[in-house]
């Protein structure tokens, strides 16, 4: 099962290596990882999606906790969260397909950020499933390039 971990770490060089290295050497699989500075510039937040049963996830979080650079590990799985991913997708188009593709982009509430004679580039935000669905839909036209950020997540406020 996929778990989403929010990991608060110190914001300095080498920290990413420590975290990624721990996953590698303990044979845990990272599905996606995104990292950036938080509201506190000394702290970065990693959102790590990892595959494993409850026991594996428990070990992952305990091992992460042991790293001196890790402040906090929260398993967001099963919590009320908002999660988002950003994707940039370049799709092949020609005079016949351009309109169809643009309509699809519209349906998915994407945004065209670049347009060439033979392709368009779309920006899309949403949860992973929405992005998967969009990709499935436009693939037949010719998927030229796909960049995804990996998931970021935040818990919902309780009011």
């Amino acid at each position: 099962m996929l778990h989403t971990l929010a990991v608060l770490v110190e914001n300095h060089p080498g920290v990413l290596t420590r975290v990624a290295g721990l996953f590698a050497r303990r044979a845990y699989n990272i599905e996606s990882l995104s990292v950036c500075q938080t509201e506190d510039p000394g702290i970065s937040r990693m959102t790590i999606v990892v595959d494993g049963d409850d026991q594996v996830i428990e070990q992952v979080s305990k091992q992460l906790h042991k790293l001196v650079v890790v402040h906090k590990v929260t398993d967001l799985t099963g919590e009320a969260i908002v999660d988002r991913e950003l994707a940039l997708i370049r799709v092949k188009v020609n005079n016949e397909t351009r309109l169809e593709v643009l309509q699809t982009v519209d349906v998915f509430r994407g945004r065209v950020v670049d347009m060439g004679r033979t392709n368009i580039t779309v920006e899309l935000t949403g949860d992973g499933e929405k992005i998967d669905a969009f990709v499935r839909t436009v693939r037949p036209y010719g998927l030229m390039e796909l960049v995804r950020t990996g998931k970021i997540a935040i818990t919902r406020s309780d009011n």
């Binding site: 026991q55 428990e58 070990q59 091992q63 042991k66």
Partner: peptide, 8 residues
């Protein structure tokens, strides 16, 4: 003392 050992 090492919580990661428990249940490993």
């Amino acid at each position: 003392v090492d919580p990661a050992e428990i249940g490993k």
